[in-house]
C-alpha cells in the first residue's frame, strides 16, 4: 500500500515536470503565430475583463500602500522640486526668446514645426496587470488591444514621458515592455546644447536608474539635463519611437564615469511604478511585424 502511494506520487511528479519541460521547449521554439501563442492570446483575451475588474476593485488597496511610500518620499521630493522650479524659472525666460527666434527662422527656411507626435493617434489604456517578478522582466498589461488598432511596436507614453512599446497584442489586451526591461534599448539624445546621442538601457538590479551609454567621452552633460528620444530613420531601419519624446532627466553625470564607461545616469520622467493609465501612440505607417523585429523583445516570454 505504502509502495503504491510512493510510486503514484513519483509518477505524478515526473508527469508534471515532463509536461512543464515540453511546454517550455515547445513555446520557446515557436513563432508568434504558433498554436501555443494563439492559445495564450485567447486566454489573455478572456482574462483581461476579469483582470480589469480586479484592477479597478483593488485600486483603493494599491493607493493605500502607495500612500505610505509616497508620504515618506514627499518631503525630499518637495525640496528637490522647489530647487528645480527656481532653476527652471530662470531658464524659461531664455527659452521663450529662443522659441520666438526659432519660429521666425523656421518660417524663413520653410521647416515643419511638428515633432512627429502629431501623426499618431493617442489611445488611452488602463493598466490591468503586471508580472510579479520584475527583476529581469519589466512589463505591464493594458486593456487596449488589436480591437482598438494597437499593434506590436507601438510606442507608449504616460505623464509626458516615454514608457515603452507594445510587445504583444491580443484582441482586448496588450503587453507593454517598459524602458526599464533588460531587453529594452532606446536611442536617445541629451538636450545639453550639443545634442549628444547614446543608447538608453536599464541598470540591472535598480531598474529605475537608467543609463545612457555610448556617449562621447568628452560630452558636457550636467545634472537635470533632459533626455529625449532620437527617433532615427534610415532607408533600412526606423526607430520604434518618434523623435523628441521626453524620456528622463540626468541624475548623475560624473566626468570620470563618462570618460571611462561613456555613460550617465537618468531617472525616467514617467512614474513607471505607479501607472494607472498610459497612452498608446497608434502610428500610421510601418507594419507591426517589421517593428517587432526592430524592437528586439523576442527574448524570453516575448512574442
Amino acid at each position: 500500500m505504502y509502495d503504491k502511494q510512493v510510486r503514484r506520487r513519483r509518477a505524478v511528479l515526473a508527469l508534471l515536470v515532463v509536461v512543464s519541460l515540453i511546454l517550455l521547449t515547445a513555446y520557446f521554439g515557436e513563432s508568434a503565430g504558433s498554436p501555443l501563442h494563439s492559445v495564450q492570446r485567447g486566454v489573455v483575451a478572456v482574462l483581461s475583463p476579469v483582470q480589469e475588474g480586479a484592477s479597478r476593485a483593488l485600486k483603493p488597496v494599491r493607493d493605500l500602500f502607495g500612500w505610505f511610500g509616497d508620504t515618506a518620499r514627499a518631503k525630499t521630493e518637495r525640496d528637490q522640486l522647489r530647487a528645480q522650479r527656481d532653476r527652471l524659472l530662470e531658464q524659461v525666460v531664455g527659452y521663450k526668446v529662443a522659441l520666438q527666434d526659432n519660429a521666425e527662422l523656421r518660417r524663413e527656411v520653410g521647416l515643419q514645426s511638428s515633432n512627429g507626435l502629431d501623426v499618431y493617434d493617442k489611445r488611452a489604456a488602463r493598466v490591468i496587470g503586471r508580472p510579479a517578478n520584475n527583476l529581469l522582466l519589466d512589463r505591464l498589461q493594458v486593456d487596449a488591444g488589436s480591437g482598438a488598432g494597437v499593434r506590436v511596436g507601438d510606442p507608449v507614453i504616460a505623464d509626458g514621458g516615454l514608457v515603452g512599446h507594445v510587445s504583444f497584442v491580443a484582441s482586448d489586451a496588450a503587453l507593454v515592455t517598459l524602458i526599464t526591461d533588460p531587453s529594452s534599448s532606446v536611442s536617445v539624445k541629451v538636450l545639453n546644447g550639443a545634442g549628444d546621442s547614446g543608447l538608453l538601457k536599464p541598470s540591472v538590479g535598480d531598474p529605475l536608474d537608467l543609463l545612457v551609454q555610448l556617449l562621447p567621452r568628452r560630452a558636457r552633460i550636467a545634472q537635470d539635463d533632459i533626455v529625449v528620444t532620437a527617433g532615427f530613420r534610415t532607408s533600412r531601419l526606423d526607430s520604434l519611437y518618434p523623435p523628441d519624446v521626453p524620456v528622463g532627466r540626468v541624475t548623475k553625470a560624473d566626468p570620470e564615469e563618462l570618460a571611462s564607461d561613456q555613460q550617465v545616469h537618468v531617472a525616467p520622467i514617467a512614474d513607471l511604478r505607479h501607472l494607472d493609465f498610459v497612452q498608446i501612440l497608434v502610428g500610421p505607417s510601418s507594419s507591426g511585424e517589421q517593428r517587432a523585429q526592430v524592437g528586439g523583445t523576442a527574448g524570453v516570454g516575448g512574442p
Binding site: R9, V44, F168, V300, G301
Partner: peptide, 28 residues
C-alpha cells in the same frame, strides 16, 4: 507533497499564460 506539486504546477501555468511569459518556467 502531491497536492502541493499539482497546485504549484497549475498556479505557475496560469501565471505564465496570463502574463504572456514562456510557458512552463514558473510551473517548473
Amino acid at each position: 507533497s502531491l497536492p502541493g506539486a499539482i497546485f504549484g504546477f497549475a498556479v505557475g501555468l496560469f501565471a505564465d499564460v496570463a502574463l504572456v511569459q514562456t510557458l512552463g518556467v514558473t510551473s517548473l
